[in-house]
Write a protein that binds this DNA or RNA. Sequence first.
RNA 1: GCUGACGUAGCUCAAUGGUAGAGCAGGCGAUUCGUAAUCGCCAGGUUGGGGGUUCAAAUCCCCCCGUCAGCUCCA
Length: 583
Amino acid sequence: MAELDDLARMRHSAAHVMAQAVQELYPGTRLGIGPAIEDGFYYDFAFPQPITPEDLPRIEQRMAEIVRARAPFVREVLSREEALALFGDKDEAFKVELIHDLPTGEEISIYRTGDQWLDLCRGPHVGDTGRVGPFRLLTIAGAYWRGDEHRPMLQRIYGTAFATRAELETHLKRLEEAQRRDHRRLGRELDLFSVAEQVGPGLILWHPKGARVRTIVEDYWRTVHDDAGYQLVYTPHVGRAELWRTSGHLDFYRDSMYAPMEIEGQEYYAKPMNCPFHIQIYRAHLRSYRDLPIRLGELGTVYRYERTGVLHGLLRVRGFTQDDSHLFCRPDQVEQEIVGVVNLTIRLLGAFGFNEFDAYISTRPEKFVGDAAMWEQATEVLKIAARQAGLRYQIEEGGGAFYGPKIDLKIRDALGRAWQCTTVQFDFNLPERFHLEYIGEDGQPHRPVMIHRALLGSMERFFGVLIEHYGGAFPVWLAPVQAVVLPIADRHAPYAEQVARQLRAAGLRAEVDARGERIGYKIREAQVQKVPYMLVVGDQEVAGGTVAVRLRSGENLGPRPVADVTTMMMAAARPMAAAALDK
RNA sequence: GCUGACGUAGCUCAAUGGUAGAGCAGGCGAUUCGUAAUCGCCAGGUUGGGGGUUCAAAUCCCCCCGUCAGCUCCA
């Protein structure tokens, strides 16, 4: 832990060095704030003239000079008046605002770097600029002053710094690797999906290979949900205004909804959520306490307006399919249901190779519906469920939606990056609004508890995460093409077809590349497409009834009987076995 | 939405006010080949869209659309 603090301190000092370099190079630049962050640091500036990425090398160079100068960081405590005068004279309006907002009694300190530069700062810092480790400036981006979109936009420079050159290099390599795995790039290269300008931003076109993977994911999802006692349903994509008025979406969610369409004088809205429809299914019958819990599940496609600037490949889109479910249960069933959902999540995500999770429990916000005791109890249940599943969790105080507390799971991918997919939320609002009831043992109507949950989150986002997690090299059970049979010469094509037929008969996805190209060319293509098995057939294989097996790892297993290869592939194509066998 | 950068062939990129070009991919032909790119030919563009400046615009200016890095917001 001490090491981490040291690193953060050094990065914060690096931010100061950068700010000094910037102010020396671009006089008149005003300072925002400049903290250390997870992998480095940033500083926000108001430049007289906007700078561009071409300016970064210059700034880096000047930073290097400052580092070489080994100027000591010297702390100095000022009175509020002195501080205001000092930064007022320097025309540092943002700093002045910060000083004004410092609580009374808080010590106000500045740090001087040598005798040429100073900044308002709580510290701490390294001893002198020479202790700032190897750094690199990465990107420039806009950032609102104090994160408020109504305040001025500053230019933020992101940088990274490490204790050693080797660690810096490793980190830069990791950034490159992340670029190589970018699902938008792989989506194009592997022909998985696209977004067409003519269709519209944030609207995904699933190409045959992407759709293949999605179908496998969905089929598996259905199997697991059948098994877990869910009843799967289908509901429409639009619903009348009255539905959304009752649900409260028109009051609370309108900004995320598309404009209504008018049909026969009635307004209809594209659905941003599936819940009101599932509720209607619940309401289609009078429900007995004996019927509960009722778990309605759907791969439900929703449309939400998202500001253009937030759209990002598959990870943030405007039309997406949630693996949505709503659980209606009695208060005494809540705990087992939540525990069941968390366990189901871990089982489902585990099958796709995700075994590391961070859980976040969001508690009651200032504005809420229902009574506080109910919130308290529900939040407690979430904690119990997290604990029994062995999940470490953090509490997000006041982070819940107005209608109920929730637990979100972030999965860690192969590069250690966290992605939010799973969300499990209590809903104390909709059962009230729709007057949901069940008849209890006492013959009286009671209000059921409703739990909203999406485990993969959305098919789009989950697919994006899958692509990046595996770098496009899907485990055998998910690979759109599991094997490609490669005839050496035209005369081997009929045999190749025969092999492919055998594999397909065993339920495997096999293709033949019978083009008049050399074997090296076809291997390369299959390799680039990350096909798990390349089965080469030439004179020897035809004669022996074998195929020469090459794995995408580059490993050459040599000739094997077709039946053996089929068995081997079938074993590797089982969901649970996937992660272990496919290396 | 905001700030900045960007938009040229399916993809990756040239062409800095003077005739839009290459590699890969695609089509055709030749080659029949043993584990990551065989050779040749052909085709491919209203330079994101619209307007303006100019004798002349991919290039300069304005508006719109889209993409990227972030901010804000989220599955």
